[in-house]
Design a binder for these strands. Structure first.
Length: 139
DNA sequence: GCCAACGTTGGC
DNA sequence: GCCAACGTTGGC
C-alpha cells in the first residue's frame, strides 16, 4: 500500500477540523494542480497519509486514511478536478516539524523538502516508517 | 508581510 | 511551441 502526504493551512482547515468530521471524513477539495490530482487518482481505499500543517505550524501532525476514491470535486463545475475523501486515523504523539525533517539526512529526498509547493505528495515506505517513529506513533 | 519558486496562461 | 507575464503557494 502506498503512502501519501496531504498539506493544509491550519488556519483554513487543520487537523482538528478533520477530526471533527468523524469517520465519514471530508472531501479533499480545492486542489487545482494536475500532479496533486494525479496522486489522488492513484490512491486506493484505506491507504494512509500524513497530515501536514503548512504556512503556520509547519509540522506533520497526524495520520489520515483514504475513505473514498477520487471523484469529481464538488466545489467546481470544471470536470478536470477530482479529489478523494480522507478521515483522521490518529494524531502524532509528537508532531514532527519541517525543521526536524530537513535535519534528518534519511528524509532529504522527501517531496516535502524537494518540492514544497506540491499539496498532495507521495511518501515512500522508508519515509513513512521514519516519520512514524519520530512522531512516536504506530504506522 | 515579503518574496522566491513554481505552475499556468496566453500572445506571438 | 516558445517563453514572458502573471497568480499562487508556502517558508521565512
Amino acid at each position: 500500500m502506498a503512502h501519501w502526504l496531504f498539506k493544509s493551512e491550519p488556519d483554513v482547515f487543520g487537523w482538528d477540523d478533520l477530526v471533527a468530521k468523524g469517520g465519514a471524513g471530508e472531501e479533499w477539495d480545492g486542489v487545482r494542480n494536475y500532479q496533486a490530482r494525479n496522486n489522488m487518482r492513484a490512491m486506493a481505499l484505506g491507504e494512509t497519509g500524513f497530515f501536514y500543517h503548512s504556512r503556520s505550524g509547519l509540522e506533520v501532525v497526524g495520520i489520515v486514511e483514504v475513505s473514498a476514491l477520487a471523484h469529481p470535486d464538488s466545489t467546481t463545475d470544471d470536470d478536470r478536478w477530482e479529489c478523494v475523501d480522507v478521515r483522521a486515523v490518529r494524531p502524532f504523539v509528537k508532531p514532527v516539524s519541517l525543521e526536524t525533517i530537513k535535519a534528518d539526512p534519511r528524509l532529504s529526498d522527501m517531496v516535502l523538502v524537494k518540492n514544497s509547493r506540491l499539496s498532495v505528495q507521495p511518501v515512500t515506505d522508508a519515509e513513512w516508517a521514519i516519520l512514524c517513529e519520530l512522531g512516536e506513533t504506530k504506522p
